[in-house]
C-alpha cells in the first residue's frame, strides 16, 4: 500500500454566480485517517468535498484523489470513493435490501450486502421501504450505500445531522469501525463534539478558507496557547499582595484581581508554579479552577464565527451549543 496522500487539494476555488462558496482551500488527507472538515453551515464544506468527489469542477486550484483527477477520471474515481450525501436520496418504496443490492451491482468488487446490513444494524429492516425508516436508519442505509463498493475513501457529509443523541453515538461507532477496517474517511460536520470525538485531524473552514489544520488537541492549543487559572483566597488578601506573590513566576503573562478572585493567564507550568508561589506568600485558597478550552472555543477564536454570526446567509438555525447536548 502506498503512503501517498489519499486526497491532495491545493488552493481550491469555486463560485456560484457572484457568490464565492470556496475561496482558497488546501488540504491533504493521509491514508487511514478520519479527516474532519469542520465549519458552520455555508462555510464551503460541502462544496469542497463535492470538488474532491468529482461532482463539481473547481474554478481554480488542483485536486488529486487516489492519484486521479476527479473531473477527468470520474468513473474510475467513483469506483474507489464512496459518498454519503446530506439529503435522503432513494425512492420512497425502495426497500433496504433492494437498495443495497442495486448499489452493489454498480461496483466491480462489492461488499456482501448482508454483511453490511449486519454491520450497520439494518438486518431486521431489510424488507422495510425507505420511507418507513427512521432518520437514523436512513442515515445508516446511506452510509451502507457509500460503503458497498468497498471504497478506499469514504466521504460522509453531515452524517449525524438530525439524529437523536443515541442514534448519533451509534453512528459514530460505525464510523470508527469503518476506519478500523482500513477505509480513509473525510467527515464533513458542523458538530464540534463529533469532530473532537472522531477525527484524527481537522480542517477548520470559515468563509471558504481553511482557518486551521491539525489534530483536535493541536487546534485547541493553537487557539488558546494560554491557560486561565481562577483562584479564590480563603481569607481576604489585598490585591497588591496577591499580584506581588506572582510577580516572579516566569510563566505568568497576566494576572489581575476581579471580584475578589485572582485570574491568572499564562502557559507552561503555570498552574503548579502559580499555586506554589501563592502558598509561599501565605495565601490559602478555597477555590481553584482551570479553564480548559474546548474545540468549540478554538473554533470561535480561530474563525471569529461568533463575532459576526450574520455573515453567513444560511447560518445554522440551531444554537451553537448543539454539540453539548450529548
Amino acid at each position: 500500500m502506498t503512503t501517498a496522500p489519499v486526497v491532495r487539494a491545493e488552493r481550491l476555488r469555486k463560485a456560484y454566480g457572484s457568490t464565492l462558496a470556496v475561496q482558497d482551500v488546501s488540504l491533504t488527507v493521509e491514508r487511514g485517517e478520519i479527516y474532519g472538515v469542520l465549519g458552520r453551515n455555508g462555510a464551503g464544506k460541502t462544496t469542497t468535498v463535492e470538488m474532491i468527489a468529482g461532482l463539481r469542477r473547481p474554478d481554480g486550484g488542483t485536486v488529486e484523489v487516489l492519484g486521479l483527477d476527479p473531473t477527468r477520471d470520474a468513473a474510475a474515481l467513483h469506483e474507489q470513493v464512496g459518498l454519503q450525501l446530506q439529503e435522503s436520496a432513494l425512492p420512497d418504496r425502495l426497500r433496504v435490501a433492494e437498495a443495497l443490492d442495486l448499489y452493489a451491482s454498480f461496483y466491480a468488487d462489492p461488499a456482501d450486502p448482508a454483511d453490511l446490513l449486519d454491520l450497520l444494524g439494518l438486518a431486521a429492516k431489510r424488507d422495510t421501504a425507505f420511507k418507513d425508516l427512521s432518520g437514523g436508519q436512513k442515515q445508516r442505509l446511506s452510509v451502507a450505500l457509500a460503503l458497498v463498493g468497498r471504497p478506499q475513501l469514504a466521504i460522509l457529509d453531515e452524517l449525524t445531522t438530525g439524529l437523536d443523541p443515541h442514534a448519533r453515538r451509534e453512528t459514530w461507532a460505525v464510523v470508527e469501525a469503518i476506519r478500523d477496517a482500513g477505509v480513509t474517511i473525510v467527515l464533513v460536520t458542523h458538530l464540534m463534539e463529533e469532530a473532537e470525538r472522531l477525527c484524527d485531524r481537522i480542517a477548520l473552514i470559515a468563509s471558504g478558507r481553511v482557518a486551521a489544520v491539525g489534530t483536535p488537541a493541536e487546534i485547541v492549543r493553537r487557539a488558546h496557547g494560554e491557560q486561565v487559572l481562577h483562584v479564590r483566597p480563603a481569607a481576604p488578601v489585598p490585591d497588591a499582595a496577591l499580584l506581588a506573590a506572582l510577580a516572579d513566576v516566569p510563566d505568568v503573562r497576566d494576572a489581575r484581581v476581579a471580584d475578589g478572585a485572582l485570574v491568572v493567564r499564562g502557559g507552561g507550568a503555570l498552574v503548579q508554579d502559580a499555586l506554589v508561589a501563592l502558598a509561599r506568600a501565605g495565601v490559602r485558597t478555597t477555590d481553584v479552577r482551570l479553564e480548559r478550552a474546548s474545540l468549540e472555543d478554538a473554533f470561535v477564536s480561530l474563525t471569529g464565527a461568533d463575532a459576526d454570526p450574520s455573515a453567513s446567509t444560511d447560518a445554522d438555525p440551531r444554537p451553537a451549543t448543539t454539540a453539548a447536548e450529548v
Partner: peptide, 19 residues
C-alpha cells in the same frame, strides 16, 4: 458507550477492494 463491537465478518466486508 464504548465502541460497538464489529463482527469480524463485517470488518472484512468493509476492507477496501483491491483496485
Amino acid at each position: 458507550p464504548p465502541r460497538a463491537p464489529v463482527p469480524a465478518r463485517g470488518r472484512g466486508a468493509l476492507a477496501p477492494a483491491p483496485h
